[in-house]
Design a protein around this nucleic acid. Structure first.
Length: 346
DNA sequence: AAACGCCGCAACCGCCGAGGT
DNA sequence: AACCTCGGCGGTTGCGGCGTT
């Protein structure tokens, strides 16, 4: 038989707790301990059901509860554990002293989840999701705010931008072009794509499979490198699209993480050395792989401390700052011969 | 200044498993 | 075995605060 809701009895109060009720509950538990939650309200003189009292105590009044903003380390832990445990908030809370499952759940839903979505990461599977990545806005804001576009750098002769980003952008552009779906937002992307094409950066074709990336590639072969990288990324994306949780960790490998030859936008390039921490890498390989992409572009230029192996993209001082670094995703230098007005006009 | 919409969080709801009778 | 109680969990809701128009 089902069981009657614990708060169905007439006369039991619901809704927000008053300071008087809190005081009664605290005083009683300090004197007697919680004991039987069902009997507690009556003994403590509260017009609440036991369940309400338990929740109020465990989620708010408990003396060991840590209030306030989550630290970066706590965020990291939440994300890592969530990638393993899923929505097992109580299990995650065990690893975060002073935080309740309810608090973690709320924080996830209101902050982390949204941020992952903005980053193009599926908050359920922690896998990159190209359909979630708002590249259009990224490109738009970047191209509007950054007035410099240097395609020679873009093409790899100096490799001043994150090649993984380039791969991602090229992939998305080619995929969107293939889809032929009207998509007003991608006008700038198409323009960028055309620009790339004019500069011999070809969207990947099915018959353009390249050999694995060679160590110490020469600067005379940037396009080959790019195609190889794009292809590698495409295959990963395809794998991701069909993968389930259990297979995420094994679907990506090092060639999608960090290429030691690459330089980043930061004047002091920082490359997470994931290989040095196999434990962390095994925690959530896919997330790490994607975060490595992000770390290269979201790390504050002034960041005094390199991202270590346990750092994730989430490591910057404020949420605004974290988001603002997304605007640095693409930093091109525009050649003088390029008519930027024409390029930007929609 | 008022209306409106969004966001974050505390609290509630419904379900489940364990254990007791 | 059936029923009941209890604690616990995850999902959802509703309200207050805040920013925008």
């Amino acid at each position: 038989m089902g069981r009657a809701p614990c708060c169905d009895k007439a006369g039991l109060k619901k809704g927000p707790w008053t300071p008087e009720e809190d005081h009664k509950l605290i005083s009683y538990i300090q004197l007697h301990g919680p004991g039987n939650w069902r009997n507690l309200p009556k003994n403590a003189g509260l017009q609440r059901c036991g369940k309400s009292c338990r929740l109020r105590w465990t989620n708010y009044l408990r003396p060991d509860i840590k209030r306030g903003r989550f630290s970066f380390e706590e965020e990291e832990t939440i994300i890592q554990l969530h990638s393993i445990l899923g929505n097992k908030w109580s299990a995650i809370a065990v690893r975060l002293p002073g935080r309740t499952d309810n608090e973690i759940k709320n924080y996830w839903n209101t902050h982390i989840r949204k941020r992952l979505l903005r980053m193009g990461i599926d908050p359920v599977t922690h896998a990159p999701r190209l359909d979630l990545l708002d590249l259009s806005s990224i490109l738009s804001s970047t191209l509007c705010n950054q007035s410099i576009l240097n395609m020679s750098n873009l093409l790899g002769t100096q490799a001043l931008m994150n090649p993984e980003l380039l791969r991602l952008a090229t992939t998305i552009l080619s995929l969107k072009q293939e889809s032929q779906v009207p998509f007003p937002q991608n006008l700038q992307e198409n323009q960028l794509c055309n620009f790339l094409l004019q500069n011999q950066v070809q969207p990947l074709q099915a018959n353009q499979y390249q050999a694995p990336i060679q160590e110490g590639f020469s600067s005379e072969e940037p396009n080959q490198l790019m195609q190889a990288n794009v292809e590698g990324f495409l295959s990963k994306v395809a794998t991701f699209g069909n993968s389930q949780e259990n297979s995420i960790a094994s679907n990506l490998n090092e060639d999608f993480v960090c290429q030691p030859n690459y330089m980043y936008c930061d004047s002091n390039p920082i490359v997470p050395d994931l290989a040095e921490n196999p434990n962390f890498q095994s925690l959530n390989n896919s997330y790490q792989n994607f975060s490595s992409f992000d770390s290269a572009v979201s790390t504050p230029k002034s960041s005094p401390t390199p991202l270590n192996s346990s750092s994730t993209f989430i490591n910057s001082s404020t949420e605004d700052e974290r988001d603002s670094h997304c605007s640095n995703l693409l930093k091109f230098e525009i050649p003088e011969s390029l008519d930027i007005d024409e390029f930007m006009s929609i």
